[in-house]
Design a protein around this nucleic acid. Sequence first.
DNA 1: GCGATCAGCT
DNA 2: CACAGCTGATCGC
Length: 643
Amino acid sequence: MSSFPGRMKEYSTISIDRFDKENLHARAYFLSHCHKDHMKGLKGPLLKRKLKFCLTVRLYCSIVTKELLLSNRKYAFWEEHIVALELDSPTHISLIDEVTGESEDVVVTLLPAGHCPGSVMFLFEGAQGTVLYTGDFRLAVGDAARMEHLHSGDRVKDIKSVYLDTTFYDPRFYQIPSREACLIGIKELIQDWISQSPYHVVWLNCKAAYGYEYLFTNLGEEFASQVHVNSLDMYRKMPEILSYVTTNRATQIHACRHPKDEELFRANRLPCGCTSPDGTPLRIISIKPSTMWFGERTRKTKVIVRMGGSSYRACFSFHSSYSEIKDFLSYICPVNIYPNVIPLARTVEEVTELLKPMCRKNSGRNEVVYKPLGMLKRARTEYPSQDEEGELLNSKPSVLPARHSSGDNPPTQSCLQSDKPCSEMVTPHSHSDPPSPKKAPPTWATFFKAEPVLTDESSELDNSQSSQALSTYHTTSQSPELFDEDDESESVHMTSSQSTHISDGGTETPSQLDTVPVQAELDSAAQSSKQNKIQTNQKPENDPHRPIEKEPAVRKDQSEGTDCTEAMSDSQVSSDFDLPQTPGSKAPHNDELKELYKKLASGEEVPKTIITATTKTSLSPFLLFFQRPRMTGGKMSGSIDLH
DNA sequence: GCGATCAGCT
DNA sequence: CACAGCTGATCGC
């Protein structure tokens, strides 16, 4: 849970993710994502009153976050005061004190955070330096390198401070299986179950928070079905989610909720009360997404754990693991790091101490002095040749050429170096894209093609329709290979806020649980990405300004341990959806951007306008709900003068 | 009656 | 154990 007080040292006239107390006086507000612990005070009457008198105060957030926020009536009063910004679009904001008329300029850029739909990090650039507020994030190893706006031309930006999601910044949480690996495990479990008969249904025991949509869309795609949820209201303008969820109970995959859903489940009932039309009892299993983590040297990781009876837990994390956070930090190498979260059983002092080695002055670099722009070049790296056997490891530089869409552009040529506009070079799913799971995640096209398998007319399970699943998918019992005993002595953990009640009898103690770890065959996740024989080293030797060159094929030892390559390989593939670029989006203007950076660097004034993102009702911005970081050029949107 | 806070629980 | 958030009790305005 975030304990960030709302204000950063460098830009103290703005408030982020906190809206109470001193934050009531802020000149501008920022919301990184739509989770309640980041919205404290946001519906408070004090703030509501302030908006009536303060004409220039705005709330800045992503387009998806705006949509989610306004879908809740309690926040409807924000409607006229929200400025929704597009991702990767540097936006100039004037921070005006309405009493004194005093003004400060800042340029903010939203970076995808991979935490939940609409979640972003905020990159602020201005007179007080470049500062990154991460909000909550789940980024994979190497993702920072894909973020254009963490770079200035060929260089990694010189970042003064990072306000960091430290939820799992603790060596205990060294490794968390990638999203892809978790998804594969969940898909296998579900398939093995629902293919047995139309009466075999799955209940995804998800908590009341955004972030599980990733599961719904992928499962909907995988099983050509829709997931039953309580409400579609919040997704009404997000077709890419909407097409995979339904309020029709006649489906084999449920994520519906009820105040007493656990109790109902123990009585073999779904939260929605759905039964089969002919009275045949449903066979229900519950899958509870839970965070699981593994030690530094754990080789195999199980992403599904059977809790006994028909309860399972599936690995699922909204936050980056320790090694993912370290990778992120070592890439951007900030001067200061401030924790936003204090992990359980730790103190601020302990976390601060753990973060010290990642700060620039302790990172082994010579340069300590903060400069607005880095001086060392970020070189381009050729994408390793594709090969079925190799593993893509720590491929920070190697992911860059994924943007090349045609043979016209030599693989070593970056977007920024190209004469062509970036938009021409950014083609999703190009042949040189980074490895993707065996089944492509939902894409732009499918959002419009997807036809609901089931109609809303029926509220009961329909045999003829459900039996499609039976004929489509091979019927197996729970395949033995899934249930690989945990032969590792290495600590393996999982958690859930859920009590450990067991469905049958509930007499077991945790140690007595019929715990059947399922080998997630992370290998199978990795296999889909084993396209590179060359293992590219990912670490820039703790120097963000050091030239990024082709890395040696063999990874050098890391301080962390002896066998982190395997762990890293998993993390490496954990990137999110690879969604297509928003159709119709403008071509980036790198020249314009560079000019802006130059001005910022020299302390020159930049125009006092507020550049807002489009508020068009087009559905395309919602594609960005889980956008994988990718190198795109910046673009400036239209501008509105506040005065 | 409403908001803030906390304990308990999922 | 841990994610996010609900419900209910209590207290103060």
